[in-house]
Write a protein that binds this DNA or RNA. Structure first.
Length: 216
DNA sequence: ATCCCGAGGG
DNA sequence: CCCTCTGGAT
Protein backbone atom coordinates (compact mmCIF):
# COMPACT_ATOMS: atom_id res chain seq x y z
CA UNK A 1 0.00 0.00 0.00
CA UNK A 2 1.31 3.44 -0.88
CA UNK A 3 2.00 5.94 1.85
CA UNK A 4 -0.79 8.14 0.48
CA UNK A 5 -3.26 5.27 0.78
CA UNK A 6 -2.08 4.60 4.31
CA UNK A 7 -2.61 8.24 5.23
CA UNK A 8 -6.10 8.24 3.78
CA UNK A 9 -6.99 5.07 5.62
CA UNK A 10 -5.68 6.50 8.87
CA UNK A 11 -7.63 9.72 8.44
CA UNK A 12 -10.75 7.66 7.72
CA UNK A 13 -10.30 5.95 11.07
CA UNK A 14 -9.91 9.33 12.75
CA UNK A 15 -13.10 10.55 11.07
CA UNK A 16 -15.01 7.57 12.40
CA UNK A 17 -13.58 8.08 15.87
CA UNK A 18 -14.62 11.73 15.70
CA UNK A 19 -18.19 10.70 14.89
CA UNK A 20 -18.08 8.43 17.92
CA UNK A 21 -16.39 10.86 20.33
CA UNK A 22 -17.38 14.28 19.02
CA UNK A 23 -16.67 15.86 22.37
CA UNK A 24 -13.28 14.23 22.93
CA UNK A 25 -11.17 16.77 24.77
CA UNK A 26 -8.68 17.20 27.56
CA UNK A 27 -10.67 16.20 30.65
CA UNK A 28 -8.35 17.94 33.09
CA UNK A 29 -9.68 21.19 34.54
CA UNK A 30 -7.43 24.25 34.25
CA UNK A 31 -7.55 27.89 33.31
CA UNK A 32 -3.93 28.71 32.65
CA UNK A 33 -0.90 27.02 31.09
CA UNK A 34 0.60 26.56 34.54
CA UNK A 35 -2.53 24.89 35.86
CA UNK A 36 -2.55 22.48 32.93
CA UNK A 37 1.11 21.69 33.55
CA UNK A 38 0.35 20.92 37.20
CA UNK A 39 -2.74 18.85 36.40
CA UNK A 40 -0.90 16.83 33.77
CA UNK A 41 1.97 16.04 36.11
CA UNK A 42 -0.57 14.87 38.69
CA UNK A 43 -2.40 12.72 36.13
CA UNK A 44 0.30 10.05 35.93
CA UNK A 45 -1.27 6.70 36.81
CA UNK A 46 -4.32 8.46 38.15
CA UNK A 47 -7.80 9.13 36.81
CA UNK A 48 -8.56 12.63 35.60
CA UNK A 49 -11.59 12.70 37.90
CA UNK A 50 -9.32 12.25 40.88
CA UNK A 51 -6.89 14.89 39.58
CA UNK A 52 -9.71 17.40 39.18
CA UNK A 53 -10.84 16.82 42.76
CA UNK A 54 -7.34 17.59 43.99
CA UNK A 55 -6.60 20.56 41.74
CA UNK A 56 -9.85 22.24 42.77
CA UNK A 57 -8.41 22.79 46.23
CA UNK A 58 -4.81 23.07 45.10
CA UNK A 59 -5.36 25.99 42.72
CA UNK A 60 -7.41 27.80 45.37
CA UNK A 61 -4.65 27.33 47.93
CA UNK A 62 -1.81 28.26 45.54
CA UNK A 63 -3.29 30.75 43.06
CA UNK A 64 0.00 31.79 41.46
CA UNK A 65 3.23 30.13 40.37
CA UNK A 66 4.96 32.13 43.10
CA UNK A 67 2.61 30.71 45.74
CA UNK A 68 3.44 27.17 44.71
CA UNK A 69 7.16 27.92 44.48
CA UNK A 70 7.05 29.00 48.12
CA UNK A 71 5.06 25.97 49.29
CA UNK A 72 6.41 23.62 51.92
CA UNK A 73 7.30 20.28 50.35
CA UNK A 74 5.68 18.19 53.05
CA UNK A 75 2.52 20.28 53.15
CA UNK A 76 2.32 19.98 49.36
CA UNK A 77 2.67 16.21 49.62
CA UNK A 78 -0.42 16.20 51.81
CA UNK A 79 -2.29 18.47 49.38
CA UNK A 80 -1.86 16.07 46.46
CA UNK A 81 -1.66 12.80 48.34
CA UNK A 82 -4.76 11.20 46.81
CA UNK A 83 -3.32 11.31 43.29
CA UNK A 84 -0.75 8.67 44.19
CA UNK A 85 3.03 8.87 43.75
CA UNK A 86 2.69 11.95 45.91
CA UNK A 87 6.31 12.28 47.00
CA UNK A 88 7.65 12.31 43.45
CA UNK A 89 4.83 14.51 42.22
CA UNK A 90 5.20 17.05 45.03
CA UNK A 91 8.91 17.32 44.37
CA UNK A 92 8.22 17.78 40.66
CA UNK A 93 5.56 20.45 41.18
CA UNK A 94 7.74 22.42 43.57
CA UNK A 95 10.73 22.11 41.23
CA UNK A 96 8.64 23.23 38.26
CA UNK A 97 7.27 26.26 40.06
CA UNK A 98 10.72 27.28 41.31
CA UNK A 99 12.29 26.84 37.88
CA UNK A 100 9.54 28.86 36.21
CA UNK A 101 10.17 31.67 38.69
CA UNK A 102 13.96 31.59 38.47
CA UNK A 103 14.39 30.96 34.75
CA UNK A 104 11.19 31.85 32.92
CA UNK A 105 9.83 34.91 34.69
CA UNK A 106 6.99 32.82 36.08
CA UNK A 107 5.76 31.77 32.62
CA UNK A 108 5.47 28.27 31.20
CA UNK A 109 7.97 27.87 28.34
CA UNK A 110 6.52 27.12 24.90
CA UNK A 111 9.05 24.69 23.45
CA UNK A 112 9.35 20.96 23.87
CA UNK A 113 13.04 21.08 24.73
CA UNK A 114 12.49 23.59 27.53
CA UNK A 115 9.44 21.81 28.92
CA UNK A 116 11.09 18.40 29.16
CA UNK A 117 13.90 19.97 31.17
CA UNK A 118 11.42 20.69 33.96
CA UNK A 119 11.32 18.09 36.73
CA UNK A 120 8.64 15.44 36.25
CA UNK A 121 7.91 16.58 32.69
CA UNK A 122 8.45 14.13 29.82
CA UNK A 123 7.46 14.38 26.19
CA UNK A 124 3.94 13.19 26.93
CA UNK A 125 3.28 15.95 29.46
CA UNK A 126 5.08 18.54 27.33
CA UNK A 127 2.96 17.76 24.28
CA UNK A 128 -0.25 17.97 26.31
CA UNK A 129 0.66 21.50 27.37
CA UNK A 130 1.91 22.60 23.94
CA UNK A 131 -1.11 21.25 22.10
CA UNK A 132 -3.86 22.29 24.48
CA UNK A 133 -2.86 25.77 25.63
CA UNK A 134 -0.28 27.03 23.14
CA UNK A 135 -1.75 25.68 19.92
CA UNK A 136 1.53 24.02 19.03
CA UNK A 137 0.65 20.67 17.46
CA UNK A 138 2.20 17.46 18.75
CA UNK A 139 1.22 13.84 19.25
CA UNK A 140 0.68 12.85 22.85
CA UNK A 141 1.95 9.28 23.17
CA UNK A 142 0.59 7.82 26.37
CA UNK A 143 -0.31 4.24 27.15
CA UNK A 144 -3.55 4.41 25.11
CA UNK A 145 -2.04 6.06 22.06
CA UNK A 146 0.79 3.55 22.11
CA UNK A 147 -1.54 0.55 22.33
CA UNK A 148 -4.03 1.73 19.69
CA UNK A 149 -1.36 2.86 17.26
CA UNK A 150 0.11 -0.60 17.33
CA UNK A 151 -3.30 -2.25 16.97
CA UNK A 152 -4.07 -0.06 13.95
CA UNK A 153 -0.63 -0.98 12.56
CA UNK A 154 0.24 2.72 12.42
CA UNK A 155 3.58 1.77 13.95
CA UNK A 156 5.45 -1.36 14.94
CA UNK A 157 7.70 0.45 17.40
CA UNK A 158 7.77 0.09 21.19
CA UNK A 159 9.68 3.24 22.06
CA UNK A 160 7.25 6.17 22.59
CA UNK A 161 9.61 8.59 20.83
CA UNK A 162 9.70 6.42 17.71
CA UNK A 163 5.95 5.96 17.87
CA UNK A 164 5.54 9.73 18.07
CA UNK A 165 7.74 10.09 15.00
CA UNK A 166 5.76 7.47 13.05
CA UNK A 167 2.43 9.06 13.95
CA UNK A 168 3.57 12.54 13.00
CA UNK A 169 4.71 11.18 9.64
CA UNK A 170 1.47 9.31 9.04
CA UNK A 171 -1.14 11.80 10.24
CA UNK A 172 -1.62 15.32 8.85
CA UNK A 173 -0.46 17.92 11.35
CA UNK A 174 -3.90 19.48 11.72
CA UNK A 175 -5.15 16.21 13.23
CA UNK A 176 -2.39 15.64 15.77
CA UNK A 177 -3.90 17.17 18.89
CA UNK A 178 -7.43 15.91 18.31
CA UNK A 179 -6.13 12.48 17.25
CA UNK A 180 -4.47 12.09 20.63
CA UNK A 181 -7.76 12.83 22.40
CA UNK A 182 -9.72 10.48 20.15
CA UNK A 183 -7.31 7.60 20.65
CA UNK A 184 -7.34 8.12 24.41
CA UNK A 185 -11.15 8.18 24.56
CA UNK A 186 -11.44 5.10 22.36
CA UNK A 187 -8.75 3.33 24.35
CA UNK A 188 -10.61 3.95 27.57
CA UNK A 189 -14.07 3.03 26.38
CA UNK A 190 -13.70 0.20 23.84
CA UNK A 191 -10.18 -0.57 22.68
CA UNK A 192 -9.08 -1.59 26.15
CA UNK A 193 -5.98 -3.35 27.31
CA UNK A 194 -5.84 -6.29 27.34
CA UNK A 195 -9.38 -7.14 26.18
CA UNK A 196 -10.76 -4.80 23.49
CA UNK A 197 -14.54 -4.78 23.01
CA UNK A 198 -14.32 -5.40 19.27
CA UNK A 199 -17.92 -6.56 19.03
CA UNK A 200 -19.08 -3.04 19.94
CA UNK A 201 -16.46 -1.27 17.83
CA UNK A 202 -17.48 0.69 14.72
CA UNK A 203 -13.95 0.27 13.34
CA UNK A 204 -14.37 -3.46 12.88
CA UNK A 205 -13.90 -3.20 9.10
CA UNK A 206 -10.92 -0.85 9.23
CA UNK A 207 -9.00 -2.49 12.04
CA UNK A 208 -6.25 -5.06 11.36
CA UNK A 209 -7.08 -6.62 14.74
CA UNK A 210 -10.78 -7.06 14.04
CA UNK A 211 -12.42 -9.70 16.12
CA UNK A 212 -9.55 -10.38 18.50
CA UNK A 213 -12.11 -10.45 21.30
CA UNK A 214 -14.44 -12.97 19.65
CA UNK A 215 -13.18 -15.65 22.02
CA UNK A 216 -14.39 -13.58 24.97
C1' DA B 1 13.81 -3.41 34.39
C1' DT B 2 12.12 -1.30 38.44
C1' DC B 3 10.43 1.96 41.50
C1' DC B 4 7.06 5.35 43.04
C1' DC B 5 1.87 5.32 45.26
C1' DG B 6 -3.48 5.97 46.37
C1' DA B 7 -8.36 5.46 44.98
C1' DG B 8 -11.95 2.97 43.04
C1' DG B 9 -13.83 -1.09 40.96
C1' DG B 10 -14.33 -6.25 40.16
C1' DC C 1 -7.84 -9.80 47.03
C1' DC C 2 -6.89 -8.42 42.43
C1' DC C 3 -6.50 -4.94 38.92
C1' DT C 4 -6.21 -0.40 36.42
C1' DC C 5 -5.71 4.51 36.10
C1' DT C 6 -3.69 9.89 29.82
C1' DG C 7 4.32 8.69 33.38
C1' DG C 8 8.78 9.84 34.62
C1' DA C 9 13.33 9.05 36.59
C1' DT C 10 16.91 5.90 37.92
Amino acid sequence: MSSLQMRKKAVRILDKLYQLYTDAHCALRYDSPFQLLVATILSAQCTDVQVNKVTLGLFAKYPSVQDLAEADLYVLEGDIRSTGFYRNKAKSLLGCAQTLISQYNGQVPQTLSELVRLPGVGRKTANVVLGNVFGIPGMVVDTHVKRLSRRFAWTDQQDPVKIERDLCQLLPERHWVQASHLLIFHGRQLCKAPIPLCSQCPLLKECPQRGVDRAN
